[in-house]
Design a binder for these strands. Structure first.
Lengths: 249, 249
DNA sequence: GCAAAAGTGTTTTGCCTACACCCATGC
DNA sequence: GCATGGGTGTAGGCAAAACACTTTTGC
């Protein structure tokens, strides 16, 4: 494979993606673990080709790891400290994996390319976790969903990036009506509420929550969902893409 | 002077600053005009040294053009289209200024460095316009404040950058209590209201505006301001830096 | 019938708006 | 006194929050 340093990337500029999913009443983040000794977790990330926009680059990185392209994606912040580089983590990684670095994989030039100071553009994505089949790339040992409350310690400032992403998600959730991207096609009101509770890490009043959501006029009520439980069956809902924002005409 | 291409800048990454000021009941933006034939206006911008953070770089660029350092400054968006480069505008500029380009100023290498594709980080700044003495740099013909409603057509996507900055300013104004950065140390309630009206381009009800602002609990009421006009003298206010957000304890 | 969970209605609260009124100032 | 503009108080509307009640489901 062509070494990183010889591909047509913009130098010292990277993209890091916080990919949010929702499962088991928990907000989760997708994180690959590097195929090296030493337990290195990271955010899915990559670099920007000369001939693609940063948005396209983010989509490409996302598709490489999730297999899907139809994703809600938004930039939220640039991380650009002067000391922001891979040098510390790469140093430890090389130290713990001497045997690999005498081989072909990482030569000196590659190491220098990677350990320079990098400015990184943070993106966050919202996906239906059931549609995603996480894909390892060449240097991953594994790639898994981690509850946001039990994230491993990641390399560099990646834990901080996740925090900022969550802040932005919370701030944007109601305004941009994006929560539905985290759910399957159809869902019950309870599903939606539990999703909100997972994101904001606080409870919502059931009846008021339902009223608020229905008043948005973006939910289409479908048939009831019989689960076999000894109680009233909840309705299923679907998010209306073509939201009629001005219903009152 | 050392040519751009040989200084220790991060390649293909720039910063563009939308510097907001307030004067004559208008929101204004600081824009230098290039010292070349052809009427080229731009946003104050620059590049990032290897050993400085992007935030420090933005402060440096700001200080170079305004002379002050104590400024409210925030990044708001990255502009990274694949086609985003100076090549079109530089082409026109060279065409209209042949005589300058046969001289020492811009050699071929410099031209190539500048016309590559650039990703730019947008910052917006809020300043007390009275504290600023705009400074030209070596390639400016002039640098002036332009009302946001009468901005000249600027190079590249700089007009679009201003629009996005204004959107962000409007969204953040109340939440972050930053309007006061655009006013002098002391001001009347009417000053503050007119500032809001300039930013949002719509009128506010006088009494309700006053109540809303006072309820924020961040304004310190000072002495009255006698203007000699035949009416009640308005109070002067000062913004309390150490905002007591939890007054009700 | 009963427990559990879903759906809906009613009251209260707080905030924003609109309207109204009073006060200080210089002529 | 009076016009002008500044400060404040009060009533209405809307939406969120709190409280309460009814309905459906399987045993």
């Amino acid at each position: 494979m062509q070494p990183l340093s010889e591909r047509d990337y913009i130098q010292q500029l990277s993209i890091d993606c916080v990919i949010f999913g929702y499962q088991d009443k928990q907000l989760k983040v997708l994180s690959p673990k590097l195929d090296f000794k030493g337990d290195f977790w990271a955010l899915p990330g990559g670099f920007i080709h000369q001939q693609e926009s940063i948005h396209e680059a983010a989509f490409r990185i996302l598709e490489d790891r999730t297999g899907i392209r139809d994703i809600y994606l938004e930039q939220f912040r640039v991380f650009g400290d002067a000391e922001r580089s891979n040098v510390q983590f790469m140093g430890r990684l090389v130290e713990l994996n001497r045997e690999k670095f005498d081989s072909h994989l990482f030569n000196r030039k590659e190491f220098e390319w990677l350990t320079r100071r990098f400015v990184s553009i943070g993106y966050y994505a919202l996906v239906d976790i059931n549609k995603v089949v996480p894909r390892k790339n060449d240097i991953d040992e594994s790639i898994d969903w981690y509850p946001i409350k039990a994230l491993p310690t990641m390399i560099m400032d990646h834990n901080e990036i996740v925090e900022k992403a969550l802040e932005t998600l919370r701030a944007n959730l109601d305004q941009k009506l994006i929560a539905f991207n985290l759910l399957p096609e159809t869902f019950t009101m309870k599903d939606l509420q539990e999703l909100y509770e997972a994101i904001f890490d606080k409870p919502f009043a059931r009846n008021n929550f339902q009223k608020k959501m229905l008043d948005l006029n973006v939910l289409e009520r479908l048939e009831k969902k019989y689960t076999g439980a000894a109680n009233k069956a909840p309705y299923l809902y679907r998010f209306q893409q073509q939201a009629p924002l001005l219903e009152a005409v």
